[in-house]
Nucleic acid binder design. Structure first.
Ligand SMILES: [Mn+2]
Ligand SMILES: [Mn+2]
Ligand SMILES: [Zn+2]
Ligand SMILES: [Zn+2]
Lengths: 144, 144
DNA sequence: CTCATTATTGCAAAGATTTGCGGAAACCAA
DNA sequence: TTGGTTTCCGCAAATCTTTGCAATAATGAG
């Protein structure tokens, strides 16, 4: 068991109905170690529940994201997801040239986070924070 | 004239062909004071050049973004653009509840920018940086 | 000005994600 | 268990953006 049983309880408590579709999507994402594309989640879900629609997968992933159960990472121009792990919180840097993803410790966003909150009353969604740019490899390759 | 003549020269120097389509897209974005949606750009372009395709508008906007002439802002789930103004550089905070956009002085990103560059060799695309979150109004409305 | 080269465009289609709607199923109270 | 209420789902279509390809047009050389 991947430790997402508590998430199920939390969702149920919030009044959400735990359907096979939702449980399956959650299982798939929780079972993967890295970032999973929406289409890959769908393909895996269909193995056990062939009738499930892609729209349901998207709706479920958005729901899980809203509830903080999964984290969204925008890679290239596709949405990816991973189980939110409180013990290993991190943000993402994504290279727009090669789509490589590097993780970023939350400490790097602490100050920005606090300043936006205090000076503007704005609550940034740091959990799903992804910053785009060019990785070091691609910068090197570029300057030739 | 909205001061984007120099941009045209720069693009030409880079080897880009200045077609009526490109000039028109640039004129439209430069003529607006705020953030313009891709579809709005297209509608304006079509007034003078009815044959122009939406794909061309998207391709041109991406080109102008790559060259730093325009800045991209993701609002809701649509792409918006504005003329990059070196005299008034700023980033964006977008509320995921009401789509309100607040601007952010570049100073807020300086430290993060430098740390990512120095510690990871990662060059973040700060020019097109947009951070999502919940604005103060929506936070207040939420807690009721 | 004319021509050849090559970037750019329009068109059509693909891709990715979201949304409206009516029927299906989860949940809870009885 | 059963039935009623309300959420959720499959389906189909819409929406937004990107892409492949053949035809067109911008540019620079002669
Ligand atoms: Mn991650
Ligand atoms: Mn702006
Ligand atoms: Zn890279
Ligand atoms: Zn708001």
């Amino acid at each position: 068991m991947s430790g997402h049983g508590s998430a199920v309880d939390r969702l149920r408590t919030q009044g959400y109905r735990m359907t096979p579709q939702r449980l399956s999507v959650l299982d798939i994402v929780a079972g993967k170690s890295g970032h999973v594309g929406a289409d890959e989640v769908w393909n895996q879900v269909k193995i056990q529940h062939p009738y499930v629609d892609l729209a349901t997968v998207y709706r479920t992933l958005q729901l899980l994201k809203r509830e903080g159960v999964v984290t969204e990472v925008v890679i290239g121009n596709k949405l990816h997801f991973e189980l939110t792990d409180q013990q290993n919180r991190h943000h993402h840097m994504v290279c727009s040239h090669c789509d490589a993803v590097q993780t970023l410790s939350p400490a790097y966003l602490d100050e920005l986070n606090r300043r936006l909150q205090r000076e503007f009353g704005f609550a940034p969604d740091v959990e799903n924070f992804t910053i785009g740019g060019v990785c070091s490899k691609c910068q090197t390759a570029e300057s030739e």
